[in-house]
Protein backbone atom coordinates (compact mmCIF):
# COMPACT_ATOMS: atom_id res chain seq x y z
CA UNK A 1 0.00 0.00 0.00
CA UNK A 2 1.52 3.34 -0.99
CA UNK A 3 1.69 6.15 1.55
CA UNK A 4 -0.46 9.10 0.56
CA UNK A 5 0.40 12.65 1.60
CA UNK A 6 -1.92 14.38 4.01
CA UNK A 7 -3.89 17.11 2.24
CA UNK A 8 -2.41 20.15 3.93
CA UNK A 9 -1.53 22.36 1.01
CA UNK A 10 -4.56 22.08 -1.28
CA UNK A 11 -5.98 25.37 -2.40
CA UNK A 12 -9.38 24.34 -3.76
CA UNK A 13 -10.98 26.68 -1.19
CA UNK A 14 -8.54 29.48 -2.02
CA UNK A 15 -6.39 28.84 1.03
CA UNK A 16 -4.41 25.96 2.56
CA UNK A 17 -6.61 23.29 4.12
CA UNK A 18 -4.94 23.72 7.52
CA UNK A 19 -5.74 27.43 7.61
CA UNK A 20 -9.34 26.78 6.55
CA UNK A 21 -9.59 24.23 9.36
CA UNK A 22 -8.34 26.75 11.94
CA UNK A 23 -10.88 29.36 10.81
CA UNK A 24 -13.56 26.67 10.99
CA UNK A 25 -12.40 25.78 14.50
CA UNK A 26 -12.56 29.45 15.52
CA UNK A 27 -16.11 29.74 14.12
CA UNK A 28 -17.19 26.76 16.24
CA UNK A 29 -15.38 28.15 19.29
CA UNK A 30 -17.34 31.39 18.91
CA UNK A 31 -20.52 29.36 19.45
CA UNK A 32 -19.04 27.62 22.52
CA UNK A 33 -17.74 30.79 24.22
CA UNK A 34 -20.70 32.79 22.90
CA UNK A 35 -23.06 30.38 24.66
CA UNK A 36 -21.24 30.70 27.98
CA UNK A 37 -20.82 34.49 27.78
CA UNK A 38 -24.38 35.02 26.49
CA UNK A 39 -25.77 32.95 29.38
CA UNK A 40 -23.65 34.87 31.85
CA UNK A 41 -24.80 38.24 30.47
CA UNK A 42 -28.52 37.38 30.61
CA UNK A 43 -28.23 36.04 34.17
CA UNK A 44 -26.10 39.00 35.27
CA UNK A 45 -28.68 41.46 33.88
CA UNK A 46 -31.46 39.60 35.71
CA UNK A 47 -29.65 39.55 39.06
CA UNK A 48 -28.43 42.91 40.34
CA UNK A 49 -27.35 41.18 43.54
CA UNK A 50 -24.52 39.43 41.66
CA UNK A 51 -22.63 42.71 41.96
CA UNK A 52 -21.98 41.80 45.61
CA UNK A 53 -20.26 38.55 44.53
CA UNK A 54 -18.45 40.15 41.58
CA UNK A 55 -16.95 42.74 43.93
CA UNK A 56 -14.57 40.04 45.21
CA UNK A 57 -12.82 39.48 41.86
CA UNK A 58 -9.49 41.27 41.61
CA UNK A 59 -9.49 43.85 38.77
CA UNK A 60 -5.70 44.33 38.93
CA UNK A 61 -4.99 40.63 38.49
CA UNK A 62 -7.44 40.51 35.56
CA UNK A 63 -5.80 43.59 34.01
CA UNK A 64 -2.32 42.12 34.43
CA UNK A 65 -3.38 38.90 32.71
CA UNK A 66 -4.94 40.96 29.89
CA UNK A 67 -1.59 42.71 29.42
CA UNK A 68 0.18 39.33 29.38
CA UNK A 69 -2.15 37.96 26.68
CA UNK A 70 -1.97 41.14 24.54
CA UNK A 71 1.84 40.96 24.70
CA UNK A 72 1.84 37.27 23.82
CA UNK A 73 -0.37 38.08 20.81
CA UNK A 74 2.28 40.59 19.69
CA UNK A 75 5.03 37.95 19.86
CA UNK A 76 2.76 35.47 18.02
CA UNK A 77 2.17 37.87 15.11
CA UNK A 78 5.89 38.73 14.98
CA UNK A 79 6.62 34.98 14.87
CA UNK A 80 4.23 34.71 11.91
CA UNK A 81 6.09 37.51 10.17
CA UNK A 82 9.46 35.81 10.81
CA UNK A 83 8.06 32.54 9.42
CA UNK A 84 6.81 34.39 6.32
CA UNK A 85 10.36 35.59 5.67
CA UNK A 86 11.68 32.05 6.14
CA UNK A 87 13.49 32.72 9.44
CA UNK A 88 12.48 29.60 11.36
CA UNK A 89 14.86 30.20 14.28
CA UNK A 90 13.49 33.69 14.94
CA UNK A 91 9.91 32.38 14.61
CA UNK A 92 10.71 29.67 17.16
CA UNK A 93 12.22 32.19 19.62
CA UNK A 94 9.11 34.38 19.35
CA UNK A 95 6.82 31.37 19.81
CA UNK A 96 8.75 30.41 22.96
CA UNK A 97 8.20 33.99 24.18
CA UNK A 98 4.47 33.52 23.50
CA UNK A 99 4.57 30.29 25.52
CA UNK A 100 6.24 32.20 28.36
CA UNK A 101 3.20 34.50 28.27
CA UNK A 102 0.90 31.49 28.50
CA UNK A 103 2.85 30.11 31.49
CA UNK A 104 2.74 33.52 33.23
CA UNK A 105 -1.02 33.71 32.62
CA UNK A 106 -1.54 30.24 34.13
CA UNK A 107 0.66 30.96 37.18
CA UNK A 108 -1.24 34.19 37.89
CA UNK A 109 -4.55 32.34 37.43
CA UNK A 110 -3.46 29.57 39.79
CA UNK A 111 -2.50 32.16 42.42
CA UNK A 112 -5.79 34.01 41.90
CA UNK A 113 -7.98 30.90 42.13
CA UNK A 114 -6.10 29.60 45.19
CA UNK A 115 -6.73 32.91 46.96
CA UNK A 116 -10.42 32.90 46.01
CA UNK A 117 -10.99 29.26 46.97
CA UNK A 118 -9.25 29.70 50.34
CA UNK A 119 -11.57 32.67 50.96
CA UNK A 120 -14.54 30.36 50.44
CA UNK A 121 -15.46 31.32 46.86
CA UNK A 122 -15.74 27.93 45.19
CA UNK A 123 -17.56 26.78 42.04
CA UNK A 124 -20.60 25.81 44.20
CA UNK A 125 -20.68 29.01 46.30
CA UNK A 126 -23.22 30.75 44.06
CA UNK A 127 -24.33 30.92 40.42
CA UNK A 128 -21.98 33.86 39.85
CA UNK A 129 -18.95 31.84 40.99
CA UNK A 130 -20.15 28.85 38.93
CA UNK A 131 -20.10 31.04 35.82
CA UNK A 132 -16.80 32.60 36.86
CA UNK A 133 -14.95 29.30 37.23
CA UNK A 134 -16.64 27.73 34.17
CA UNK A 135 -15.92 30.61 31.77
CA UNK A 136 -12.39 31.31 33.06
CA UNK A 137 -11.71 27.55 33.33
CA UNK A 138 -12.69 26.81 29.72
CA UNK A 139 -10.55 29.75 28.65
CA UNK A 140 -7.58 28.57 30.74
CA UNK A 141 -7.89 25.11 29.14
CA UNK A 142 -7.59 26.78 25.74
CA UNK A 143 -4.49 28.67 26.91
CA UNK A 144 -2.93 25.40 28.08
CA UNK A 145 -3.72 23.51 24.86
CA UNK A 146 -2.51 26.47 22.76
CA UNK A 147 0.80 26.58 24.66
CA UNK A 148 1.41 22.84 24.18
CA UNK A 149 0.70 23.02 20.43
CA UNK A 150 2.87 26.13 20.20
CA UNK A 151 5.84 24.28 21.74
CA UNK A 152 5.46 21.54 19.12
CA UNK A 153 5.22 24.09 16.28
CA UNK A 154 8.20 26.04 17.67
CA UNK A 155 10.43 22.97 17.87
CA UNK A 156 9.65 22.19 14.19
CA UNK A 157 10.10 25.84 13.14
CA UNK A 158 13.53 25.88 14.85
CA UNK A 159 14.61 23.20 12.35
CA UNK A 160 13.02 25.16 9.50
CA UNK A 161 10.14 22.68 9.13
CA UNK A 162 6.39 23.37 8.67
CA UNK A 163 6.74 27.15 8.91
CA UNK A 164 3.14 27.58 7.72
CA UNK A 165 2.03 26.11 11.08
CA UNK A 166 3.31 29.27 12.80
CA UNK A 167 0.49 31.29 11.25
CA UNK A 168 -2.10 28.64 12.17
CA UNK A 169 -1.20 28.49 15.87
CA UNK A 170 -1.00 32.31 15.83
CA UNK A 171 -4.60 32.57 14.59
CA UNK A 172 -5.78 30.30 17.38
CA UNK A 173 -3.76 32.24 19.95
CA UNK A 174 -5.20 35.61 18.88
CA UNK A 175 -8.69 34.14 19.21
CA UNK A 176 -7.91 33.03 22.78
CA UNK A 177 -6.76 36.62 23.40
CA UNK A 178 -10.01 38.05 21.94
CA UNK A 179 -12.09 35.81 24.24
CA UNK A 180 -10.18 37.12 27.26
CA UNK A 181 -10.70 40.71 26.06
CA UNK A 182 -14.44 40.11 26.62
CA UNK A 183 -14.12 37.99 29.76
CA UNK A 184 -12.08 40.69 31.51
CA UNK A 185 -14.79 43.41 31.66
CA UNK A 186 -17.55 40.87 32.27
CA UNK A 187 -15.93 39.15 35.25
CA UNK A 188 -13.62 41.82 36.66
CA UNK A 189 -14.99 45.27 35.79
CA UNK A 190 -18.82 45.04 35.73
CA UNK A 191 -19.39 45.15 39.49
Amino acid sequence: MSARPIANTRTAAGMPTGKLAVWWLIASEIVIFGGVLGSYIMHRLAHDDWAVQAAYTNTWIGAFNTLVLLTSSLSAVLAHQAAESGDGKKAARLLYATCAGAVTFMIVKAFEWTTEITHGFTITSSTFWSFYYTAAGIHAAHVLVGAIIMLIVASAAKKGRDLHHVELIGLYWHFVDVVWIFLFPLLYIAK
Binding site: L74, A76, G170, L171, H174, F175, D177, I181
Partner: peptide, 18 residues
Protein backbone atom coordinates in the same frame (compact mmCIF):
# COMPACT_ATOMS: atom_id res chain seq x y z
CA UNK B 1 -14.89 52.05 28.99
CA UNK B 2 -15.60 48.44 30.00
CA UNK B 3 -17.52 47.09 27.01
CA UNK B 4 -17.10 49.67 24.23
CA UNK B 5 -13.33 49.50 24.60
CA UNK B 6 -13.45 45.67 24.66
CA UNK B 7 -15.13 45.76 21.23
CA UNK B 8 -12.46 48.19 19.91
CA UNK B 9 -9.63 46.04 21.31
CA UNK B 10 -11.12 42.87 19.78
CA UNK B 11 -11.49 44.66 16.42
CA UNK B 12 -7.83 45.76 16.49
CA UNK B 13 -6.62 42.22 17.26
CA UNK B 14 -8.86 40.62 14.61
CA UNK B 15 -7.92 43.18 11.94
CA UNK B 16 -4.21 43.63 12.60
CA UNK B 17 -3.05 40.37 14.18
CA UNK B 18 -5.46 37.86 12.60
Amino acid sequence: TAFGIAVIKAYLVVKNFM
